[in-house]
Design a protein around this nucleic acid. Structure first.
Length: 303
DNA sequence: GCCCAGGTGCGGC
DNA sequence: GCCGCACATGGG
């Protein structure tokens, strides 16, 4: 059954939203996006002021709208951002990129895997982890959900040493979710600073989660719109366009183009960025990430 | 083979 | 406490 979500003027660019490294396993086939929301297979397509979708098992329209945070006004979030030229440029170049609201467990899985990897590599690893769950069919597509905590605990390692230490972190995380020492709804209700601190210092309940991964799961699955994840691309963007937010010693360390932050440097740059960008800083961060990663703004070659 | 990726934990000072 | 390094996967 084809269903529709009315957008009522809300900007929505599915290509930017689903292909900007927030989610890893959505694929565009013939003008439609295919992926999973929770354990339902979903096909989505943008139409004139609506979003059309099919799903199996069938989802209510509210669930799809929630996944795309259509309950939040993008224009109001844009208005809350600072008005400097760089910020305006990032917003203009990626207008319609929305923050997603993912299932927390699946989001944690993805971002524990993500550290130090390319998006393509992350996708390949997640597809392998998902390859043994029962397929969910939609039209002619077979989609495999990521393993639940129970499924992950009983899963065999794909091959000896696969994922190194991360394999153990994933298993430990599954146990912590099952025994509630990591509780998503508590983290969702708790204010940003406290949730972030708990995740980063929460070893051994949540090993493999440093400040960057914590910011990603808080922003993409736990309703913390002020979270401002800083990876290599975003650090480059901050140094280039918001130099005053980055301490001199950090600029010095990254002078050769490499881009990494110690935990202490991360906390300092993060605090400055959150103070500057405000309650929806994460939205601007995603626009900056996409801009820097995609090479938008690099000098265009003459035709 | 080398370099780079949505970084992190660990052992050295 | 802070700093440097190994660590894996996969693509270019």
């Amino acid at each position: 059954m084809l269903q529709t979500v009315r957008l009522r003027g809300e900007p929505l660019d599915l290509d930017l939203t689903l292909n900007s490294g927030q989610v890893f396993r959505w694929r565009k086939v013939g003008g439609s996006w295919f992926g999973l929301i929770g354990r339902s297979a979903v096909e989505m397509r943008r139409a004139a002021d609506t979003l059309e979708f099919r799903s199996n098992p069938g989802l209510p329209t509210d669930t799809v709208a929630s996944f795309l945070t259509l309950d939040m006004s993008l224009e109001k979030m844009y208005e809350s951002l600072p008005t400097d030229a760089a910020t305006r440029n990032f917003v203009r170049s990626c207008r319609g990129l929305r923050i997603v609201r993912q299932d927390p467990w699946q989001c944690f899985l993805g971002y524990v895997v993500s550290s130090g990897m390319s998006i393509r590599a992350i996708t390949a690893v997640l597809d392998l982890l998902a390859s043994r769950t029962p397929a969910v069919k939609l039209d002619a597509m077979d989609l495999h959900p990521l393993p639940s905590p129970q499924e992950l605990l009983t899963a065999r390692r794909p091959r000896p040493g696969y994922l190194g230490a991360k394999w153990g972190y994933l298993k430990q995380l599954a146990r912590s979710v099952l025994d509630s020492s990591v509780d998503f709804e508590t983290l969702r209700r708790t204010r940003y600073e406290e949730s972030h601190r708990r995740l980063v210092l929460g070893t051994p309940h949540a090993n493999g989660i440093g400040p960057k991964v914590a910011d990603c799961v808080l922003l993409f699955s736990l309703d913390k719109p002020e979270a401002f994840p800083i990876d290599r691309w975003v650090l480059r963007g901050l140094m280039k366009h918001y130099g005053w937010l980055v301490p001199d010693r950090v600029v010095e360390k990254n002078r050769n183009g490499a881009a990494g932050l110690s935990v202490r440097d991360y906390q300092e740059v993060s605090a400055r960025a959150r103070a500057y960008f405000g309650p929806h800083g994460g939205l601007l961060q995603e626009h900056m990430f996409e801009y820097m990663r995609s090479g938008r703004g690099l000098p265009q070659r003459a035709a």
